[in-house]
Computed example of a mutant assay.
Amino acid sequence: MEKQLFVNIDTPIISALKLMDNIKVKLLIVGDAYNFLGLVSVGDIQRAIINNIDLNTPISNILRKDIIVANENESEEDIKRRMLQIRTEFMPVINNKNHVVRIVFWDDLISTKKLPPVEKLNFPVVIMAGGKGTRLKPITNVLPKPLIPIGKKPIVEHIIDRFIEVGCKDFYFSVNFKSELIEYFFNSFEHPEYCIRYLKEKEFLGTAGSLNLLNGKINSTFFVSNCDIIIDQDYSEIYNYHKNNKNELTLVAALKHYNIPYGTVETGYNGELMKMEEKPEITYKINAGLYILEPHLLNEIPVNEFFHITHLIEKIKNRNGKVGVFPVSEKSWRDIGEWDEYLKNMEE
């Protein structure tokens, strides 16, 4: 594992992000054991994506100077204190020759496996749980999609757990299809750390129509999540991006990479060949199904009308409002709404 944490300074941003995904880390060491050059984090890469930096740019272009490392003379207690302070999953220990003499991992020092969030958020969360789950038939002939199990718990509990980690405890479930089973499930056990209220659609209102039922009930920034996605990201970091950029709505987008198995060509006027590329990879930003909204947007959702969240985004953009996009890596986003993806994620 330790050797995998090192990347060359000329490594493209996209390659560094894929390596993080593959070995399930959010931090890499730039250089090698005998020539420490710096650190690159998933946050550095996310800021680069937000700033529209080409993902084929070398990571040397996004390295920060204000990194924190340990020196070989520091005690374990000092290193632990610093790691807690900056919330880092590991810290390289450097000697006076700029060699990496060892790496101290969060797991080795701290009893809790997961890094704590940047800050606690006590914001309401709306989980859109009213769909029929047609892509997951025949299992959704029996169970509503939110109750489909991932490991020992239904997917909606995994979603709730991630919000509880950042201090959220007030949940609203927008329900319709087999809503009585969802209510029965959550009424069958105690969950004192959070409470659930239900928004009951009389008919299907799309991915945002039922939010109108919250008008006058929510007066703060709030999250909206699909009921079939799991995102591995500190949600407080998404909120800080939302707040610092004064967005009215922020959507989370996952990077998705597609390999074209053919050589591609680009042509100009009169069919002149301009460029050829052999089996290129294309990267798109995919709407991941997680949003942060400001409460005044509830006034823009029509009453009892079919209305998607994309319609709301169009309304905001048409009046020159601000919608932001926060990127996450491909493997930080899991969409359980299709059979192939569900089968990959049956164990959590």
Score class of each variant (00 low, 15 high):
V101P: 12
V101W: 04
R102M: 13
I103R: 08
I103W: 05
F105H: 15
F105Q: 12
W106Q: 08
W106N: 11
D108H: 14
L109I: 11
L109N: 13
L109C: 10
I110H: 12
I110G: 08
S111Y: 13
K114W: 10
K114P: 07
L115V: 14
P116D: 12
P117A: 13
E119R: 00
E119C: 02
K120I: 07
K120R: 11
P124A: 05
V125W: 10
V125Y: 09
V125M: 06
V126Q: 05
I127R: 01
I127Y: 01
M128W: 00
M128S: 04
G130N: 04
G133H: 02
G133F: 06
R135L: 09
R135Q: 09
R135C: 04
L136E: 05
K137E: 11
K137H: 06
P138D: 11
I139R: 00
V142M: 08
V142Q: 10
L143E: 00
L143V: 01
P144A: 03
P144Y: 06
K145I: 08
K145S: 06
K145R: 13
K145M: 09
P146S: 01
P146W: 00
P146T: 02
L147P: 03
I148H: 01
I148T: 05
I150E: 02
I150L: 07
I150R: 10
I150D: 05
G151F: 08
G151R: 05
K153V: 04
K153S: 12
K153T: 03
P154R: 01
I155W: 04
I155C: 06
